[in-house]
Amino acid sequence: MTPSAAELLASTTARLAPDPQANRLVPLISRGEASRETLAVLALEQRWVIAADRRSFLHLAERAAATPIAAAFFTSLAEGESLAAERMTAFAEACGVTAERTRTYDPLPGCQAYPAYVSWLALNASPADAILALTANFSAWGGYCARIAEALRTHYAFPDEARAFFDLFAQPAPDLDSRATAAVSAALDEGRLDETAAHRYGRLLQCYEAMFWNSLRAIP
């Protein structure tokens, strides 16, 4: 029996769940052992990621224009990145990041591999396959954000506004989930979904996600 869209999203997310040991930084932040400099570099790298991902999602929305359900999913992601950019400002300021440092900062290749691959997906993957891969990855990202938000409160005494970026992604997103399910369901019905390709894309996203965090782990 062919699985439903909801079942396929759930099973793909479970299959692509990262090894608990893959991310070597978030446990340090959770224990309050990461330096303020590491948090500052996290803020600087995220500024690059947010801007790049927003453009990638907008491009995917354009490519999916003939399928309004999928286009709405990517448009929602782009809008989320715009909100994330606003909330990142308070986190960066709490980390002591100045406007001058932001302007002159040179990003780390290991951190920017993830948005570079999202850009590749925006250019090369079918929108339906990208939805499945991205949704599976978001589960791990949301878990990391929840742990960081709690650590910023308990170990680093960051105010609410400085934690808002991580709270945004840690919260459930039922509207986004329903759009992903509807888009995957339509793709299944029309034979537009390549599960093998989507799984491959999702696996690479998880690898690049781990690379992002572990590149930051090397910061003193």
Score class of each variant (00 low, 15 high):
115 P>Q: 08
93 E>G: 05
162 A>V: 00
173 A>R: 10
165 F>E: 03
112 Q>M: 15
93 E>H: 07
121 L>A: 06
137 N>S: 15
59 H>K: 13
138 F>I: 15
104 T>N: 00
109 P>H: 05
166 F>P: 00
130 A>T: 10
171 Q>A: 14
102 T>R: 12
61 A>E: 12
122 A>D: 09
125 A>P: 06
148 I>K: 03
88 M>P: 00
175 D>P: 04
156 Y>R: 04
123 L>M: 15
108 L>W: 07
77 L>T: 07
101 R>I: 00
165 F>S: 03
110 G>E: 11
169 F>E: 03
166 F>M: 12
109 P>C: 12
83 L>K: 14
172 P>I: 02
119 S>K: 13
123 L>R: 15
59 H>E: 08
152 L>R: 05
167 D>S: 03
147 R>N: 05
170 A>Q: 06
98 T>E: 00
117 Y>H: 09
73 F>N: 05
151 A>H: 06
147 R>V: 06
86 E>L: 13
120 W>V: 14
133 A>I: 04
56 S>Q: 09
119 S>E: 14
118 V>S: 08
163 R>W: 00
152 L>T: 04
65 A>E: 08
139 S>L: 12
124 N>Q: 14
73 F>T: 00
143 G>M: 13
109 P>K: 03
110 G>C: 13
156 Y>A: 02
119 S>C: 14
147 R>Q: 06
79 E>Y: 11
160 D>K: 11
78 A>E: 08
63 R>W: 07
131 I>D: 01
160 D>G: 11
171 Q>I: 11
116 A>G: 08
59 H>R: 15
82 S>H: 10
78 A>G: 10
70 A>N: 02
91 F>C: 03
133 A>D: 03
112 Q>K: 10
167 D>G: 02
121 L>K: 03
89 T>H: 09
147 R>E: 05
139 S>G: 05
108 L>Y: 06
165 F>I: 05
164 A>H: 07
91 F>I: 01
151 A>F: 10
93 E>I: 01
80 G>R: 06
65 A>G: 11
71 A>W: 12
149 A>F: 09
154 T>C: 09
95 C>D: 06
78 A>C: 07
114 Y>F: 15
62 E>M: 11
172 P>C: 01
156 Y>F: 07
101 R>Y: 00
74 F>G: 03
175 D>M: 14
92 A>P: 02
73 F>I: 01
88 M>R: 02
134 L>D: 13
159 P>I: 01
102 T>S: 05
135 T>F: 15
79 E>V: 07
98 T>I: 01
138 F>T: 15
